[in-house]
């Protein structure tokens, strides 16, 4: 089984076993990773499951739709590799992926 590692803003690392087919947000919430609020429950409607994907892994997170871009634009800590984790589907090919959490969700 592969692993994805979430890194909190303070540097704390949380490796999580890959469960293919779930969203990255669900993977975080179900494993008790702090710093993901996901207020809308995965509808791409609140922007509070923001993550910053390690540059080398951006391509494997897949395509971004306009609705996600629109929500991310409202996030003060947005970077070039920001994603809403509810819009990323976890797959076995993500073994070793590193995902950073922003300081705050808004």
């Amino acid at each position: 089984m592969g692993r994805i590692t979430f890194v909190e803003h303070n540097g704390a690392k949380h490796p999580v076993e890959i469960e293919a087919g779930k969203s990255l947000m669900e993977a975080a919430v179900e494993n008790g990773i702090p710093g993901i609020d996901a207020d809308c429950g995965g509808a791409c409607a609140c922007g509070t499951c923001h993550v910053i994907v390690d540059k080398s892994w951006v391509e494997s997170t897949g395509e971004m739709y306009a609705s996600e871009e629109g929500m991310l634009a409202m996030t003060p800590e947005k970077t070039d590799t920001s994603r809403l984790s509810c819009q990323v589907t976890v797959s076995e090919s993500m073994d070793g992926m590193v995902v950073h959490l922003p300081e705050f969700q808004m």
Partner: peptide, 20 residues
């Protein structure tokens, strides 16, 4: 449980800016 999943702040691009 899931108390944050309410509609009072709205959802989408107009979601309440002052929610925090």
């Amino acid at each position: 449980q899931n108390a944050r999943k309410h509609l009072s702040f709205g959802f989408g691009v107009h979601r309440c800016m002052g929610n925090r």
